[in-house]
Structure formats: C-alpha cells, structure tokens
Design a protein around this nucleic acid. Structure first.
Lengths: 340, 340
DNA sequence: GTATATATAGAAAAGGTTTTCTATAGAAAT
DNA sequence: ATTTCTATAGAAAACCTTTTCTATATATAC
C-alpha cells in the first residue's frame, strides 16, 4: 500500500494541495468548511507529511549532527544530554556519531552529515587537519567545536581550561608529597590531551621534580590502552612503582583501576590515583576518586545554544566565539598524603 | 555563498546533469573525456551532493531509527553498538532517541522518525498501546521490537527469556537460604518488567515462600526511583530487613547499592543483592554482582539484521518473526549463603 | 456606482536529485 | 550500401512539499 501524499489528501477533500498545506501548517487563512474537509481526509487516509520533501523545499532539516569520540563515554553522553536539553524544545533532533578517535572515520562522518544537510555540526575532533572543516565554514556551514580545539579552524569553540586544571590536579598530588608520578596521556595531537599533559609537566617542573620517561604512558584516551599501558608499567617497575598515577581522562582512570586491581595494588594505600573527569557511577566506586570535575552538561548546553545561534544568525568570517569553561577540583579519597 | 548543486557542476563542465549524476554514481557508462570534465568541475566547485534530494527521489533515507528508554543506560548502549555493527557496513546511519519511559514522548518520537522517513524503526517500547505501531505496519513500514513485547503488535520481536531467567535468579537466592527477599520492579505494564516479576514470584511460590507486600518495590526501571524505594523500605523495616534484594534491571541495582551504602549495609554480609542485567563497569564495583547477564550486543545485532531484512524484503501481514535470546546466570560475589 | 482593500482558493514554480525515455553517432552485421 | 546493434549523451519526468503568484468574490471606502 502506497503511503498517502498531500496530493491524495487534496483529491479526497476536493481542494488544492495548497489548501491542504495551509491547513496543516496553519500559516494562511482557510475557511472552516475546507479545513474540516481537509482534516477529515487527513485522518481517513492516515496521512503523515513527508519531512524529506519538506526539508528539500525549506532548505533546512531541523537536525544537528553531534560527532564525538565515543558516545558510550559518560562525559560525551552528558554533553549530548546538555545539547539536547537546549535544542530539543526548539524542534531540533540530534544525530550522534562516534569517531572512535579515528580521523578517517571522523572525516567520513562529517561528509555524511553534511550531505544529509544537517543544520549544524557539533564536533569533538580527533583530527588536527582543519582543511575540510574550513571548507564547510566557507559554505557558511555552522560548526561548533567542543572539548578540543583544532588549529587554524574557523569555528566557534567551547573548551575547558585544561592546562590550569591539570596543573592544579598535579599540584594537589605534589602537595601530598608525591614525587614519583606516572601520567597516562591521551593522543597528544588532540588539544585537550596535550594541554593536560603540559599542565601536568609544568607543575612538576615548577616544583623541581623531574619527569621520568618510563612514567609517561600512552593511553589514547581509551580504557583498554590505558589498562595495557599501566599493566606493562607495573611489570617493568615492580620495585620502583610510582606513588601516584595521573590519568588524563575518565576512561583511562578506569583502565588504570582495573590494572591495579589485578595486581592487588590498593588505592590510595599503595598508590594514589587522580583522574581528569569523572568516571561512571563515581558514587559506587571505592575509593571515591579525586578528580577534576568537568561540567559536561554545561558544555553541551553552551554548544546547543551556540549552534542555534549560528543556525539563526549565520556564520560570518572572522567572527568566531571562544568559551572557556572552568572545571573544579574535587578532592575525595584516592590520594594519600605520603609525607606524614 | 550558495552551495553548489548538480546543475552548477553540469554548467561548469558543459554537460547535462544526467551525465554528472552518472559520473558520481558510476551506474552508467560515461566517456573518459566527459568524466574528467565532470570530476574537475566537482572539485573546483567543492560540490557535495544533497542527500535530502536524493532521498526524496530514491524514496529511501539509508537511516534507521532506534528508540529506547535511555541511551545512557549501558544495556541499551550495547544494543545500539550491536545494531551499528551490522547496519553501518551496509551504509545505514542510526538516529537514537530516548523515551525516558514516557509513552507520550515515545509516540512523538515515533511520529517524528516516521515523518523523517527513516527506513525502519527499532523500538524498545514503554507503551502498551499498539495502535500507532500497527498503523505504521499497515503502511508496510518495518518495525522491530526489542527487549519488550507490545500486546497485539504486528512486528518482529527480539526479546530475552525473562520469565525463566528471573526464575533461575530467584532460585539461586532461595538455594542460598534466602526467604525474606525484596524485589524492585520496573513499570509492570512493560513486558520485561512483568515477566521478570512473574518469574520471581513463581520461584517463591514453588518453594512455598510467601511474598510480603512491603518487599515489593516500585522502581520504574530507573536508578533514582529504586534508590528512593529501597531507602524508604530500609527506614520502615529497620528491625526486619530482607536478607536479599532482587533488582529487575541494572539501573535499579545501582540505585539499591547507593541506598545500602548510605546506611552502611554491606553486600553480601548484611544483605545479598542480585541484578537482572549487568551494571556499569562491573569489574570495578565491589562486590562483583551476581547477575543475569543479557547479551545486549547480540540482541542489537539480531535487530540490525532483522531491520535490513525487512527493508530489503518488505513486511508482509501475518509473517512476523520472534527471537528469544537466552541469558546466562553469572554467579559472582554478592550472594551470601545464609544457611551455613 | 466605481475604486480599493480583504479574505480565500487554486495554479504553478521551485527545491536537487535519479532515471526513463529519446536521440545520435559509430560499429557490426548483412 | 543498408540495416541493426551498442555506446554515449541529453531532455524531461518524477519524488513531495512550500510558497509565490493570480484570480475571484465579497466587503469597505469614496
């Protein structure tokens, strides 16, 4: 059975398709008599308008693309919820995509979304190449970068103050007497990873602590990589373990915990652990982790607002905004003072 | 700057739009000479085809709608990944939506997706009314129900064997000597909730244990509701606590844990806890929970396959398939044998 | 009583593709 | 040399809306 179109409705109600459209969209006066006939036909035929055709004509899809590293990461999930809380009441729907930290996949996803003519894209990029993004910007297509900057990219940006926060978090470890600190890095070509590492490094430097190369781990922001890296580090340093681990994101903190647990190394008694960003169900995890708490929901809200703003007002060259959110240090139970 | 269309490309290359389309889609022979000209024009104009127009013409969007209670629930997240693993290689993209267990929202979401002309919908319904779904089915629109049946609904169904699994899980508690068991229910009008409760109830009945009304809690499948219900239960039964809690889904198990923790009630020493479905990061939670482990990824895969099948083969009246996945009892550390 | 405004309705264009239908040129077959 | 096929290319229709442009009838103003 073919799906009813506006033409079918018009025929059944004995009116023109213009009239049907007007009744449905309530944007032009229609006599009560015809309105009744149209409504009747609509319900008899169980007509449901074709949003694809409407989008083609109106040149807008009421859709926003959201592309992040991994939507199952609670951090990005919270961002997604923040975005939705803003744009959903305005009639926009979201299309979520995960890049899995793979620049090629990211590029494909962006192209796909653009071809679908989403009205804007909110992106936490894992790429350093801004050429495609700038190409889109040139077509005055709105792009909102979140969580990660892309060098030379013409787009609005909503990021955290990674450097200062990481500095503060490292300082906290140092103040508790830690000198042998292991850091688990994300992919250093993404800005949040490198900024966090820089903040960490600077804190050590400022305190005259030198950073052992073996204590700098590659984790790629992913749990399994961090798990493997920590495990290997432990095996290689049985007699010279660091006193603390600094995970530069939540997933890698989880990976570290899993590895430590396997060797029965207790937090914080045997080793201290801090994380940049909250892990899943933090209230049920022992011990409660001392973290930099990012307000992911707020980042999402800001991104949603910015997207709507650009959709409505357009994107003008050389007029891009940058918001820097300030995270918070949450001192909990995973850092032991080893000076006492 | 207007976005380039196929017409712009055709003009620039001095060919017809048919030729451009053919070059891009590679579905009809085009001479090398013209092909070169077209490709050149495409790159000069930075042309990116309009998928909306293509969808309108081809009557397919290469999109599948997925609507579940809450995409931040790791159970549904795993399902989503399972679906994606199947449909993404075939060129389909997913649109995820959360109903928050709200039937009205579900209905709106379904309508929106249908108007967007997604090619199929995969749905974990929180509604008992099949009328709208059947209306869609009548338009031969493919609907795949997952996790939850809807009465009298013309659709393919992929569910777990909730009754037997719940029975098995309850039996496990009973075999460990538990008689005073508290159950936290989901919304009983959704099939998975009622079937799990029935399995639980039957196990008690078969063992001659009677179920106290005060031990039957309403949790609505949500963490906060379960948290509140358990807390209240504890306050009202300080001197007559159950020896075990049976949570009928993962989120409510988390809620129960949070509540118990607040009263410093230890699992499993003071009270045993089992869950239907794994909670977040189960390997990092103490103690490791004894659960019915649902293979959510497999459910997603099956749903993806079924969706593709229906998209390709169409939906015929009275020819719907039903798959029943068999979950597994995973005995871990959260149940204490109180007979010893 | 004529000119002008207002309310309502239909016709038709436009949005950007894909695909069928025609058309042409050259190759192959007779 | 004439017919038949094949390869290639363009014209035009179709997909389903929204919206502009016309048209008509009635109401208002002078």
């Amino acid at each position: 059975m073919r799906r009813a179109t506006i033409t079918d409705v018009a025929k059944r109600a004995n009116v023109s398709i213009s009239t049907v459209s007007r009744v449905l969209n309530k944007n032009y006066p229609v006599s009560d008599e015809l309105r009744q006939k149209v409504l009747q036909a609509v319900s008899e035929l169980n007509y449901q308008p074709n949003a694809v055709a409407r989008s083609l004509k109106k040149q807008t899809t009421n859709t926003i693309g959201v592309v992040v590293a991994d939507i199952s990461n609670p951090f990005f999930m919270q961002i997604a919820k923040g975005i939705e809380s803003i744009v959903s009441p305005q009639g926009y729907q979201l299309i979520f995509c995960s890049t899995d930290e793979n620049p090629t996949k990211e590029h494909t996803l962006l192209r796909l979304l653009y071809e679908r003519r989403v009205d804007a894209i909110i992106l936490a990029s894992c790429d350093t190449d801004s050429s495609y993004l700038n190409q889109l910007a040139q077509n005055s297509f709105p792009i909102i970068l979140i969580d990660r900057k892309v060098p030379n990219c013409n787009a609005d940006v909503i990021v955290e103050d990674n450097f200062s926060s990481a500095y503060m978090l490292a300082q906290h470890l140092i103040q508790n007497g830690h000198r042998k600190i292991c850091v688990i890095n994300g992919p250093l070509k993404v800005s949040s990873a490198s900024e966090r590492f820089e903040g960490f490094r600077k804190a050590l430097e400022d305190n005259g602590i030198d950073l052992k190369k073996e204590y700098v781990l590659e984790g790629n922001f992913m749990r399994c990589d961090a798990y493997g890296a920590v495990k290997k580090m432990i095996l290689n340093h049985q007699n010279d373990l660091p006193t603390a681990i600094f995970a530069t994101n939540n997933l890698m903190a989880e990976g570290a915990m899993a590895a430590l647990r396997e060797f029965n190394i207790k937090i914080p008694d045997d080793i201290s652990l801090v994380s940049f960003g909250d892990i899943s169900i933090p209230d049920l995890i022992d011990p409660k982790l001392t973290v930099i708490s990012q307000n992911a929901f707020a980042i999402g809200q800001k991104a949603g607002e910015m997207a709507l703003y650009r959709i409505k007002r357009g994107v003008k060259k050389h007029d891009f905004k940058e918001f820097i959110m300030v995270p918070e240090l949450r001192i909990r139970d995973s850092v032991k003072n080893i000076e006492l």
